[in-house]
Write a protein that binds this DNA or RNA. Structure first.
Length: 132
DNA sequence: ACTTTGACTATAA
DNA sequence: GTTATAGCCAAAG
């Protein structure tokens, strides 16, 4: 750290390169991180994640982030994230509407009528499980 | 820079 | 039980 590696090269005004525009500084990465922490066979709500990251006043942002999750790497288990009612609100955002439901069932989560059965049992709260 | 939207949630009727 | 409305914050158009 002796010097600034920030385009500190010569040439006055050679800012042509703007490095990579997308970095994990985004609030999305935080959401992805929590989403990946969801254990198999469990599910959580947007509000729970939002509360964990501190934006509990905006569970919507979690959904927004998930929207980009489709492009996130590694893949984010968005299928384990549902709304407060346990309803698969985002199933339509998967490649196919059945993908989310199928994944949940495969993990042992019962899904009926696009809603997780015994959601309170499979509910996984990062603020509690992670007990930060 | 402003407007619209969006995979939510809570409260009210 | 559902439907309507408001609050919320951040990103995309």
């Amino acid at each position: 750290m002796t010097q600034l590696k920030k385009k500190g090269k010569t040439v006055a005004g050679t800012k042509a390169l703007k490095e990579k525009p997308d970095r994990k500084d985004s609030f999305f990465e935080t959401v992805y991180d929590v989403a990946r922490l969801i254990p198999r066979g469990r599910a959580t709500s947007y509000g729970a994640i939002a509360a964990y990251i501190g934006t509990k006043l905006s569970a919507r942002m979690v959904g927004w982030a998930m929207n980009a999750a489709g492009s996130a790497r590694p893949k984010v288990p968005a299928h384990r994230v549902v709304n407060r009612n346990g309803m698969l609100s985002g199933k339509h955002h998967f490649g196919t509407p059945d993908a989310m439901e199928k994944l949940l069932k495969k993990e042992g989560i019962k899904v009926k009528n696009d809603t997780i059965v015994d959601f309170d049992k499979v509910f996984w709260d990062p603020a509690v499980e992670l007990a930060l």
